[in-house]
Nucleic acid binder design. Structure first.
Length: 110
DNA sequence: TCCATGACATCTG
DNA sequence: ACAGATGCCATGG
């Protein structure tokens, strides 16, 4: 039997694959991750996908921030995310991350 | 099929 | 810098 409606599965895997590429100590925005996954303008889909991830996933879900460099995850998750970020050496100034420094990928390094 | 929802993004005042 | 309005894309009822 063919799976004609595997559009979501496909999108999900691509998002997960892209997410797995994000190195420790760096971050990406939802929109950026969507692009890397080949799904431009599907930022919200990224959010829904991440929300479904099992709590014991090894994917770096905590390295995903919104375009403002702030955590979009509502409490109590935000607390855990911030902790994980700082654990990787990412500094949150006034509740936000400096994307000019931590955003991945950086042109220079590319 | 239509409508509501969401870990977003961008523009405007 | 901040809040509200609008646009986007896929999912689920």
């Amino acid at each position: 039997m063919r799976k004609i409606k595997s559009e979501a599965n496909d999108a999900t895997s691509r998002i997960c694959l892209a997410l797995a590429q994000v190195p420790s100590g760096r971050v990406v925005t939802y929109g950026r991750l969507a692009e890397l996954a080949g799904l431009p303008r599907a930022a919200r889909l990224v959010g829904q996908t991440l929300r479904k991830l099992p709590k014991d996933t090894r994917l770096p879900w905590h390295r995903v921030l919104n375009a403002q460099g702030k955590i979009s995850l509502p409490e109590p998750g935000a607390q855990r995310q911030m902790k994980r970020l700082e654990a990787e050496g990412i500094t949150l100034m006034n509740g936000k991350v400096d994307l000019g420094i931590y955003l991945w990928p950086q042109e220079k390094e590319l």
